[in-house]
Amino acid sequence: MTIATSVKQCLANLKGIEAQLSSLALNSNDKGAQEVFHDTMLTIASVKKDLQTRVLELERLEPQYKG
């Protein structure tokens, strides 16, 4: 597995985590829990953004792994 694919996989995982956190934030009844889920979702979103830029860079450096 090349670096590009594993980074992409990691990115996919992050997207899944973000979606699950957002659903937990919506489904929870407790205010505190809702807040924690929402906050962490935003953190995950920022990590995701960084990783997305890195994926684009990798694709530019190694065009053969594009896709």
Binding site: F37, D39, T40, T43, I44, S46, V47
Partner: peptide, 10 residues
């Protein structure tokens, strides 16, 4: 590091 903090929080 950010993720580790998130894990601790969650």
């Amino acid at each position: 590091k950010l993720l580790q903090e998130t894990i601790d929080k969650l």
